[in-house]
Each structure stands twice: as C-alpha cells, then as structure tokens.
Computed example of a mutant assay.
Amino acid sequence: MKLIQKIASKQTYTVRNAVLRHGKPIESCRFDGDDLETTTHFGLVVAKNIIGIVSIFQHKSDIFVVGNQYQIRGMAVLEDFQQKGFGRELILYCEKYILTKNGNLIWFNARENAVKFYEKLGYTKQGNPFIIDGIGSHYVMYKMLT
C-alpha cells in the first residue's frame, strides 16, 4: 500500500540524508524554516516506510512578482524507489495542496541533474546556474499555478 501523508520535519531527515546530504552529518538535514507553522512536510509511505519526501515553505522569492508563492525544498526519493513515478506523484500532490492554499507560484532550487525531471512536469528554468556550497550546481525553477 502507498500513500502520501503529512509528516513532522524530523521524519524527513533520513531520506534527506540518504539522497540530498549523503555523507554529511544528520544535522545538515535540518532546513531553516522547517518548523514554521507555514511549512508543511509530506512523506510518501510504502509498506509503512517513508521512501520519498517533500517540504513546502510559504516563502517569497524576490525573483518573482507574484504574491502567494510557495517554495519546494528537500524533494527526494530513496534510490531504490527512483524512476518509478514516486517523485512525480509527490510534486503533483504538492501542486494540488498549494492550490488549496491559494498559491499562485511554486519555485525551488533544482539540482542540475534534476532539471529535465521538472521540465517534464511543466517547470521552467529562471536565470543561470549557480552553485550551492557543498552541494553543487542548481537552477531556480518555477511554475505558475493560476
């Protein structure tokens, strides 16, 4: 059985560590804003195990002029479950959730190797690539929802 459900920020750490912060201390998996009331975390659960996660922050980027913006952070699926459509399910779930919050725009910093995945879901690159120290090359990507 598979389901997407709200989870606590600390429940994201194991997947964040395995996929996004591999080899780094577990403390590096805590993001600023994780525990704000306006932040929501979702876990994709298969056989009672969290195999994918995504966090949604109500956070405005100065790049965009649209009012009600949400940032996706920490989107990750464990390696054994990648290429099976789970990441797509998580992103589509986020889009529906953000629409219920009257969100106009989703934006995030995408790793360069994930850009094609997001483009297939209708996201667009904004600007030039940039480096996040210790992590690598990223692009800002976005999608208008309304």
Results as ranks from 00 to 15, higher is better:
86 F>H: 14
15 V>R: 05
41 H>V: 03
5 Q>T: 12
119 E>L: 06
19 V>D: 08
110 A>M: 09
73 R>T: 02
108 F>S: 08
34 D>Y: 00
56 I>S: 12
143 K>T: 05
66 V>A: 15
49 N>E: 15
7 I>V: 03
83 Q>N: 15
36 L>K: 11
135 I>T: 06
64 F>E: 13
42 F>E: 02
42 F>A: 09
77 V>C: 07
112 E>M: 06
28 S>M: 01
46 V>M: 14
68 N>Y: 04
84 K>Y: 07
116 K>D: 13
135 I>P: 09
69 Q>A: 05
137 S>R: 15
87 G>S: 04
129 P>T: 07
32 D>R: 01
41 H>W: 03
133 D>H: 13
44 L>A: 02
87 G>C: 02
127 G>A: 11
126 Q>E: 11
86 F>P: 05
92 L>P: 06
96 K>P: 09
43 G>Q: 02
24 K>C: 05
143 K>C: 09
74 G>R: 07
140 V>R: 11
84 K>V: 04
34 D>A: 00
134 G>S: 07
75 M>E: 12
130 F>M: 11
38 T>Y: 12
32 D>V: 01
98 I>S: 07
48 K>F: 07
79 E>M: 08
24 K>F: 11
100 T>L: 10
36 L>S: 05
5 Q>S: 12
66 V>G: 13
38 T>A: 15
31 F>D: 00
103 G>E: 12
76 A>Q: 06
92 L>W: 03
95 E>I: 04
15 V>S: 08
30 R>F: 00
57 F>E: 09
32 D>K: 01
111 R>Y: 12
7 I>Y: 02
88 R>F: 05
81 F>S: 05
60 K>H: 10
111 R>A: 08
8 A>G: 09
4 I>K: 07
134 G>Q: 08
33 G>C: 04
76 A>F: 07
23 G>D: 09
49 N>D: 14
43 G>K: 06
140 V>Y: 15
47 A>F: 05
102 N>P: 01
127 G>C: 12
117 F>Y: 13
3 L>Q: 14
106 I>S: 08
113 N>Q: 11
98 I>H: 02
59 H>C: 03
65 V>W: 08
21 R>A: 04
131 I>Y: 11
67 G>M: 10
83 Q>G: 14
87 G>N: 04
20 L>N: 01
50 I>Q: 11
64 F>M: 08
28 S>P: 01
6 K>A: 08
66 V>D: 15
109 N>C: 08
120 K>H: 12
94 C>G: 06
94 C>Y: 06
51 I>F: 10
126 Q>P: 01
27 E>F: 00
94 C>E: 01
54 V>M: 14
92 L>F: 04
30 R>L: 01
51 I>Q: 14
4 I>D: 06
64 F>D: 13
28 S>Q: 01
24 K>N: 05
23 G>C: 06
54 V>H: 12
113 N>I: 12
29 C>T: 03
90 L>W: 09
64 F>G: 11
64 F>R: 03
46 V>D: 11
6 K>D: 13
87 G>R: 01
129 P>C: 11
22 H>Y: 15
43 G>A: 05
75 M>L: 14
8 A>K: 13
101 K>V: 02
74 G>S: 10
60 K>L: 03
59 H>P: 01
63 I>Y: 15
81 F>V: 00
132 I>L: 12
66 V>W: 09
49 N>H: 12
99 L>K: 15
116 K>V: 08
